[in-house]
Every structure is written in structure tokens, then in C-alpha cells.
């Protein structure tokens, strides 16, 4: 299948390991990512200042996708959430649609809200499926234990994800991990929010939110925490050292993106998958997989 890859602002600058592994694994599974140079910010950072600015910015990107006649695949939970929400609003609220289209006229665009927007893992789950992944795996990640982190905007608001995953008992990422041959580790704070949204306002509170999960996961002995969003990464990988220092705990929980783990299971080399850019090296994991 062909789909537009929506990189957003953060991934293509700060999370190249995520991007490179997503592109490689998609290609291997027969998903054709098409780049659209004109895609920019989804508008999420404007929402606290002016909700309508977010809507118009997201609508601009949705309109570009509609012109191509293709659905969108995003790597960031916030991009996927924002675009999905606005597509839904534009589709269902005629008055709003007209208002937004009046604003979009100045850039020669028109939006209907017809485009489907999905996080990469959701796309894999829906289009390739657990069985499809299992069949494609050439090097099962036997002996590897992985802890999933879904992220709030992957699951919520649930009214926008009808027929997909459950916010109370999510399973899609866990099933996708199992499909790689790795074991899924369950832990008490599975559903916790990372706190990234308030890092700029109160580092103390944000760190306290992320700490619980890092502590839980390190206790389980998991080889890595598995993410699907660059913002969650800011907290769990970027802030981990500081959190270890402030809690006095010896935290060294490697953090990997789902397509990095998937790529290993598809027989790709860690070098190709950008593991050099992981700041807390998943040494134990790579040793088992690559020897």
C-alpha cells in the first residue's frame, strides 16, 4: 500500500533512529512511504494559545494529503492525534469546515476531512497484522523482554479511536511486540502519562511522572522500554539521567522505538536501524540478538 509519511517537526531533526527504522521496516513489509516536502508542523503547539489556529494548521496539512489522494502515517503520537482530531471535526462539523475553508482560501487549499491518519504501529497492526509480521520475521527476538509504552495520544481520546485499541486495556503494541518473538513485560504503571506535556512548565512534576514507569520497568528486568512517539522519548530517554540522579536510583533502562525492535526481527543490522543514536545503549538486547 502507499501512504504519505508525516514526519512532523521533531522526528526528522531529533529522532533519526526512529525515522530510519520506520522507513526500512515499512519498505520490507511492502508499505510504500511517500514523502511530501510541503508537510510542516501539525499545529499542536498552537493549541494552548488558540484552538482555531491549530485546526487551520492541521487542516492545511490534511488538505495537502487530500490533494494527493492518500492517507497519512505519522510517527509522532501528537501529530497523529492532532491531525486525526481535526480530520474528524472538519468531517462532522459543517459550520467549522466552511469557516476553516474560508481561512484556507488564502493558500489555495480546500479540506473535507476525508484522510485517515494513523500512527505507524496502528497502520502496521491494521494493514499488516500480527500474523503478517510473524510471517515476515526471519530472526525471532527469542529471550528478549520488552516493556511497551503506548502514550496517551495513541489511545485517547477514545471517541476518536472507535474500533481500535482500548485505553484501559491496550493490546496492539503488546501484540506487535509478541509478533517479533520477544516477550512482553507487564508492569503496574503501563498506562501512565510520561509528563512530557508539562516539562516546560515544571520539570519537577514532569520528572516525577516519568520516574514511576522507569522504576517499574527497571524492576522487571526488561531489556528495553518500547516507544512509538518522540515526545515520550524526551521524558524516558532524555530525562532519565536526571531522574536517576534526583531519585538516587540506578536507572539504566534502554529505550527503543518499535520499528527498531521490529527491524532486528526482520534480520536488519543494528547499524542500519540507527541504534548508534540511542542514548542509553540497549547492549543486553543487541548482544542476545547479534551476538
Amino acid at each position: 500500500m502507499e501512504v504519505l509519511l508525516y514526519l512532523g517537526c521533531t522526528v526528522p531533526i531529533r529522532n533519526l533512529n526512529y525515522e530510519v527504522s520506520a522507513r526500512l521496516t515499512a519498505q520490507a513489509l511492502g508499505i510504500n512511504f511517500r514523502d511530501l516536502e510541503e508537510f510542516g508542523c501539525c499545529g499542536f503547539p498552537l493549541k494552548s494559545l488558540n484552538v482555531e489556529d491549530t485546526i487551520v494548521t492541521a487542516a492545511r496539512n490534511l488538505a495537502l494529503a487530500e490533494r494527493e489522494g492518500l492517507d497519512i502515517c505519522a510517527l509522532c503520537n501528537a501529530c497523529a492525534g492532532t491531525l486525526n482530531e481535526v480530520a474528524h471535526q472538519v468531517r462532522t462539523n459543517l459550520e467549522l469546515r466552511e469557516k476553516i475553508n474560508r481561512r484556507l482560501k488564502v493558500v489555495g487549499l480546500h479540506v473535507e476531512g476525508k484522510v485517515k491518519v494513523r500512527n505507524f504501529v496502528r497502520l502496521l497492526w491494521e494493514e499488516i497484522g500480527v500474523e503478517g509480521i510473524r510471517k515476515a520475521v526471519t530472526r525471532p527476538l527469542e529471550g528478549i523482554m520488552l516493556a511497551p509504552h503506548y502514550g496517551c495520544h495513541y489511545l485517547k481520546p477514545s471517541e476518536l479511536n472507535v474500533g481500535f485499541d482500548s485505553p484501559e486495556t491496550p493490546k496492539t503494541l503488546s501484540e506487535m511486540i509478541t509478533a517479533t518473538g520477544a516477550a512482553v513485560v507487564n508492569y503496574p504503571s503501563l498506562l501512565d502519562c510520561c509528563g512530557g506535556g508539562l516539562l516546560g512548565m515544571s520539570e519537577e512534576v514532569a520528572n516525577a511522572m516519568a520516574a514511576r514507569k522507569l522504576i517499574d520497568v527497571s524492576k522487571t528486568g526488561a531489556h528495553a522500554l518500547v516507544l512509538v512517539c518522540p515526545f515520550c522519548n524526551v521524558m524516558y530517554e532524555g530525562q532519565q539521567k536526571k531522574i536517576a540522579k534526583s531519585t538516587g536510583l540506578d536507572l539504566k533502562t534502554p529505550v527503543v522505538y518499535y520499528p527498531q525492535a521490529l527491524g532486528l526481527a526482520l534480520g536488519m543490522k543494528s547499524d542500519q536501524l540507527g541504534f548508534k543514536l540511542n542514548r542509553i545503549k540497549p547492549t543486553g538486547l543487541l548482544k542476545i540478538v547479534e551476538g
Binding site: H153, G196, G197
Partner: peptide, 11 residues
């Protein structure tokens, strides 16, 4: 400004 927009309340 402390809301993390996690949608927990909304759910």
C-alpha cells in the same frame, strides 16, 4: 499550564 493533556479526565 500544568495540564499534560493526557485525556485521563475526559475518559
Amino acid at each position: 499550564w500544568l495540564c499534560s493533556s493526557c485525556y485521563g479526565c475526559q475518559e
